[in-house]
Write a protein that binds this DNA or RNA. Structure first.
Lengths: 230, 230
DNA sequence: CGCGTCTTTGACGTCTCTCAACAGGAGTGG
DNA sequence: CCACTCCTGTTGAGAGACGTCAAAGACGCG
């Protein structure tokens, strides 16, 4: 099942992390709209891209690196609503302000678009509006998958499901390095870092995966799949 | 319980009531597109509108009544992903099949649109595509709010937040009758019916609300608001 | 009135959280 | 090269919130 990574939002864009980064002028985002050329921009690890409540002036597309978007309560509880990898578009809002925050997981390159320009293009070109509609629909489906995960799945199911999703997004060969900390994982899965850590140890003991250090993981996918059957 | 299987007999209904189309909220859906006239259709309480995995041939707009959409796991665990009230559009998918099920909470009237027709209209008219984009974005925002609720809020916060949301969507005067069962509430909030019931009793004991029978509720909104501050 | 469904309440179990200590790496400076 | 610190991750013990199981009350409907 899906754990809510936002996937590349336009099917004609090459899928996965191995997207060849086209030069800023070669971006196929909003193809056919030469006026919608994104501006390249770089962010350092843990750098904030925008904060909740700020004016939503720009829209962002990941070129390389990774981004998380999240919401926070006043007492510090945090819920990550999505991880965004190369090819993903994020930061769109209906209102004038962002309803969540966005930060770079690692050193990250983005393309930035002026929201007003994108909206104007959508108003005039059905093709662009349909792309945006499709993007929103896809994000919605991912959010609803996450809803099921958070509302009805155990800690073990959440972690197993998460690992399989990461594997898929990062190449799907069963071996990868987690690009985020335990805290990010916990705040995405609605758990604590201790529960995430314990669950990983338990999965390792059961032979569902092998670990090298904290981040590098090899999955036994058949084993994991049995744990999250729906 | 539902015995009647809803099989939208299109031509029959269309013949019966070819009616001008306008939502009760006054919004005209797909204005300026006379070819996008929805067909009225009625569903009984608890009747299935469509099921997970079925072909997504139609899109639906609520005229009166209420609808729930949900996902289920093979062992019966259920997560309601949304309640849809008059004016809401639901049932749109990116793929060819529905990723969740939809049922009528109470006797419900809908407008049914052929998905292909809507998509064709969106492809030609930026105005229509923008409407669809806006509705999808609104649903997305609600889904992300639910994500935070499920991932990081206590049972009391979930129930209190839910009650305020229902109040708002049902007029916002603080007194209303819940249109759904405890099971629906529980499956929406990621809790059990016992926990929902106990939490309601507790809120009542604390003076945060008053109850008449099982469904009718008067909120002390100032009190409730303190419980869900973010 | 009788029956089924929905809701409430109680007793108990358990999964996850909280609090706390410790281990392993990476970076820094002596 | 080693000592030190910071940061992330792991593990343990105990607590607490919510779930499970069970029974009884409330409500609606034929």
């Amino acid at each position: 099942m899906t754990t809510g990574f936002s996937e590349p939002n336009f099917s004609h864009v090459a899928a996965g992390h191995a997207v060849p980064v086209q030069g800023p002028l070669g971006s196929v985002l909003f193809a056919g709209c030469p006026d919608l050329i994104g501006t390249p921009f770089s962010y350092a690890r843990e750098e904030e891209i925008y904060g909740e409540g700020e004016d939503a002036e720009f829209v962002y597309k990941v070129v390389s690196g990774a981004v998380r978007t999240h919401k926070v309560l006043s007492d510090g509880r945090r819920q990550i609503t999505g991880f965004h990898l190369p090819g993903d578009l994020f930061g769109f809002e209906q209102d004038e302000t962002h309803r969540h925050s966005a930060e770079a997981l690692s050193d990250t390159k983005l393309l930035i678009f002026r929201r007003r320009q994108v909206e104007r293009a959508a108003n005039h070109r059905a093709e662009v509006a349909c792309q945006l509609w499709g993007m929103a629909t896809k994000s919605l489906r991912l959010a609803q998958d996450l809803t099921l995960l958070l509302g009805r799945r155990s800690a073990q199911e959440r972690v197993a499901s998460f690992l399989m999703e990461v594997d898929e997004r990062l190449g799907g060969n069963g071996t990868f390095t987690l690009p985020m900390t335990r805290r990010d994982i916990a705040d995405y899965l609605g758990l604590t870092i201790e529960t995430v850590s314990r669950t990983l140890s338990q999965l390792s003991d059961e032979g569902a995966l092998q670990r090298v250090g904290g981040r590098q993981i090899s999955l036994r996918r058949a084993h994991l799949r049995r744990l999250v059957e729906d």
